[in-house]
Design a protein around this nucleic acid. Sequence first.
DNA 1: CGTAATTTTTAGTCTTGTCTAAAAATATAT
DNA 2: ATATATTTTTAGACAAGACTAAAAATTACG
Lengths: 218, 218
Amino acid sequence: MNSQSEEDYLKALYHLEMDFDAVSTNSIADYLDMKPSSVTDMLKKLAEKKFINYEKYKGTSLTKKGRLIALSIIRKHRLWETFLVEKLGFGWDQVHIIAEQLEHIKSEELIENLDNFLGNPKYDPHGDPIPNKDGEIEKMNQKLLVELKASQKGIITGVKKGTASLLNYLDKEKVKLGDSVKVIEILEFDGTYIVEINKRKLTFSEKICQNLLLETND
Amino acid sequence: MNSQSEEDYLKALYHLEMDFDAVSTNSIADYLDMKPSSVTDMLKKLAEKKFINYEKYKGTSLTKKGRLIALSIIRKHRLWETFLVEKLGFGWDQVHIIAEQLEHIKSEELIENLDNFLGNPKYDPHGDPIPNKDGEIEKMNQKLLVELKASQKGIITGVKKGTASLLNYLDKEKVKLGDSVKVIEILEFDGTYIVEINKRKLTFSEKICQNLLLETND
DNA sequence: CGTAATTTTTAGTCTTGTCTAAAAATATAT
DNA sequence: ATATATTTTTAGACAAGACTAAAAATTACG
Ligand SMILES: [Mn+2]
Ligand SMILES: [Mn+2]
Ligand SMILES: [Mn+2]
Ligand SMILES: [Mn+2]
């Protein structure tokens, strides 16, 4: 069984991976309002348990195992928030702190019964999608890279149909699904994108940008 | 704010004070499945906070302050149990462990809203009275079935602690909380009770009679 | 490039809540 | 009443999870 603290770290990791390219020790410390040294200690523990990929000084990312745990906590959090608003009459702005505690209650059956009681809601009171019990979560905003403007970010989720060769190209460039992309600059005269992936600057033609799918957070 | 552990100790103290006159270090250790030395440590801390009266080697008792905290935890415990049974469809015997966690969620407003949502119930699914928010709790005229003599009557209000399996048995026999019981005959040689419930004759072993709680009118 | 600034990790401390082993106090029984 | 048994407390250890201060690695800049 994972501790409350471990669960909060994994959840933080999940949210930070959405918003920023690299998840740094300091960003976690900021997010959780803790000191970076405390974060380092916990990262070691989570790496030991194979919940994250962690290399000293190199930042960190969730493993599949870790992501599933994070999603199960987020599922609980959002179901409880829904309960608090729909059934107990709380305002949408009051429920987060309480759900922060309720999300750690241990009982598979409890959360499935709660889900059914609430009528298997798809979204929480803040409009965020509720992951299902297998950790599947609706992709909120799937966009093409070409739709992004300079400084916007996204996570690579796939390519458009009939463009398998693009996958090969990405592979060769060491770009994988799940990698974060940040638009650095868009060249005006031919629509070329300069982007940053894994701290490397890459150049994508307009055609590539028209076929590369991203998940964004707006 | 008190820790989960402190709250569990205070609740244990409250329950033990009901059943026994003096609350010994060992009885608390037994109840909470901990070592007596750990209990001593915690008793010092609770005494420091003025939640208990404690003198080395002399046993302990709750102060008014401590009793109020214990009752507020018991209130939460029983309201959550009621929620789990009434709204989420859990059985009597499944809810205690989950409520053991839920009772520690911190939010005054949460518990008041839950109380209203449930229609301000007076009793939990085990027939135990729910304290109000001022820590007032109904004192029941409760007896064990084994204390009744032939021809006496009572209303089933619950079972003693740690006898969840008895609840299952009663369920199977279609015996519910609130049912009236009349003692028809007590077999002398093994203490078996023949009782009438809902116009049906049932046979209860002595052990069952030692664990079945009734409300009587004397 | 080389130095300065920043980030991250290490080393060591603290608190909470548990434990074991042993000592001290109290209770029981001859 | 004294010896024995039981209960309770003390002393010391440990794990989790936080912190501070300082060292080490990385990144940024002149
Ligand atoms: Mn939380
Ligand atoms: Mn939400
Ligand atoms: Mn509890
Ligand atoms: Mn109960």
